[in-house]
Structure formats: C-alpha cells, structure tokens
C-alpha cells in the first residue's frame, strides 16, 4: 500500500492564533481519513493547506506523491475539493458547472461534455441537469458540488464538512456516493462535526483540537479508549430510580450514574454475559419495573467528550448497539 497523503509538522499562524500547531497525518491510498473536531479546531485549515490553497508556515506535506508547496501544480492536477459551502455557480446549470470545470481541467469541450453527462447520471441529477443551480435543493447542490470536484477523476478527494446542514435522507445519499468513490480507489480526507459520519465513512479517525492531533485510530479503537459497553436501564416509575441504582451498584465497576429526566441508570459492568444476567436477575428480584434494558457502546460523542472535556457542537443522533432483553 502506498501513502496518498502524508503531512509532518504542519504549522499555520494567524496573528497570535495558531490554527495548526504541528499536524502530522498519513493516509493510505484508497482509504478514508476522518478529521474530527469542534469549530475552530483546525480542520478546514488542514484541508486548505493540503489542497494547496494555503501555504504552511512550517512543516511539509505530500499529496498524491507531490510536495504541496514546491509541486503545487502537480498536486492540483490530482485532487478534488468540495468545500463547506457548496461552491457551485448559481447562475449556471448543473451541466454548465461541470463542463466549465472540465474545460478548466483541460478535458476539452467534447471530453468535458461526455464526463459531465456521466457524472450527472451517477449523481442522480439528470432531471435537473439543465436548470440553473440556484433552483436546486440543498442536497442536490451538495451532490453537484461533489460531482464537480470529481470531474477530472482525482486520486485524492478533500471533503470539508460535506453534509453540514443536510437532512438525514440527503446525507445518506451523499454518503453512499462518497463510498462509491472510495470503492473505485479514491483516497478521501473528510472533515466533519458529525461523529456518525466519521463512524460511517472513515477507516481511520483523527481527533483534532486547537490545531493539534489529540487522538488517532479506528472508530473502535477510539471507543475502546473510553471504556467498555455500558448498561442502560430505564424504569417505569421515577421513584424506583434510586432503588434500581442501589441494586446495580454492587455489580458495577464504577458508581452508577442517574439521569432523572430520562428515568435512566447508566452503569458500567465487568465484561461478559454473566454480569448482564446478574443485573437482570437482581432487578427482577428487587421488583423494579424495567421499561428498557439496553447495552450501549460508547459513541464517538463520548470519545470526544472524554478527550477534550467538551461536547461537540453537533447533536448527532447517538448510535447505539442495543441488545434489548425482556425482563
């Protein structure tokens, strides 16, 4: 496997503010790296630097085998960039947007037209192909933006918060389309605030905060850092909450946490089915009426909170691996 993106010690200073403070990263060809972090963590600056839009103050990086400062033009021939705001020309039609970028990437008039038609079909934009982009919905714009960034079949694709502001259905569609590109061998560097998105698309995740990389690993590795699975017990009657906690406390590795509003007890049990069975038996024996009995793996949200002590801005739906059992 060769490396498609490699950066060492990238630093960028704006006045007194260090946007990047020594970022190292490496992405194998054909894989997806998710850059996760709160607003202002340096995600966009990293992407803009790697995409040759910004020159780093210090550090080096190679994208698709070329230096981002000294061989800018070579890099630019091999990358696609889809930004935070869908950078499409609103007065041009979808097709014209694609053809324009095709011509600027030297595909020629005929080549651009052919490639545009291909991408319009692939991104399900054929029906709207000859309407001005200002009439497109948010999801269609993002799809067009992604299609435009793929016009010259780039080796490396930079996606800066590609689904921010989209509804869940449009987001799922876009994810599928990005996944298609990865399946065809494109290397992707993706920034996102949605933990769910990094979980779904990224092979490896880099957590950044204040211009530094603070954690790195696969989604599972990061979750393991926070600890094992947790049991969540919701009781029917709020007054039984304390009782449930008292019953579970002797079985747990850490004191149970109570959530009064949700009438839920969170508790971390030792590994194995035995502990789970004992918990169920103990609750049943104590006569607590249980509404929900679920095992939850820590989400990336928990990981993030654990690493930075801050919750993420985006309240993405918490993904849970529920093992519901009737009691």
């Amino acid at each position: 496997m060769n490396t498609a993106i490699e950066a060492a010690g990238l630093t960028k200073q704006y006045g007194g503010h260090r946007a990047l403070d020594g970022v190292d990263l490496s992405v194998e060809a054909g894989t997806v790296l998710g850059l996760l972090g709160p607003n202002g963590a340096g995600k966009t600056t990293t992407v803009r630097t790697l995409a040759t839009l910004l020159e780093p103050d210090a550090g080096t990086a190679r994208v698709a085998g070329f230096d981002i400062v000294r061989q800018r033009r070579e890099v630019r021939r091999r990358i696609g960039l889809a930004g935070q705001y869908a950078a499409v020309d609103e007065l041009l039609t979808g097709r014209e947007n694609l053809v324009l970028l095709g011509r600027l990437l030297r595909l020629g008039r005929r080549g651009s037209a052919a490639r545009a038609a291909e991408l319009l079909a692939q991104f399900e934009l054929e029906a709207a192909a000859d309407k001005p982009a200002k009439e497109y919905s948010g999801g269609m714009r993002r799809r067009l933006d992604l299609a435009v960034s793929l016009i010259a079949a780039p080796e490396v694709l930079f996606l800066d918060e590609p689904t921010t502001g989209l509804d869940p259905a449009s987001r799922a569609t876009l994810w599928r389309m990005v996944q298609d590109q990865v399946d065809q061998g494109v290397t992707v560097l993706l920034t996102t605030q949605y933990l769910e998105e990094a979980d779904f698309l990224a092979d490896r995740i880099l957590v950044v905060d204040r211009g530094r990389v603070i954690a790195e690993g696969t989604s599972d590795e990061l979750k393991r850092k926070v600890g094992g699975e947790r049991l969540e017990v919701a009781v029917a009657d709020g007054s039984a909450l304390a009782q449930a906690a008292a019953v579970l406390a002797p079985l747990a590795v850490a004191p149970p946490q109570l959530d009064e509003r949700q009438r839920t007890v969170h508790v971390q049990l030792p590994d194995g089915m035995g502990a789970l069975a004992s918990a169920a038996t103990a609750l049943d024996y104590a006569g607590v009426t249980v509404e929900e009995f679920a095992l939850r793996r820590p989400s990336l949200d928990d990981v993030f909170f654990h690493l930075t002590g801050e919750a993420t801005g985006a309240p993405g739906p918490r993904e849970a691996a529920k093992a519901e059992a009737s009691v």
Binding site: R73, R76, R77, G83, Y85, A87, L101, L104, S149
Partner: peptide, 13 residues
Amino acid sequence: GKGLIDRFRSLPM
C-alpha cells in the same frame, strides 16, 4: 464569498 475562487485556485490554472 461563495467559495468559487477557492475552487478555481485548487485547479492547475
């Protein structure tokens, strides 16, 4: 403002 210049600058132009 719309980020089009960013896109143009990421091209070998």
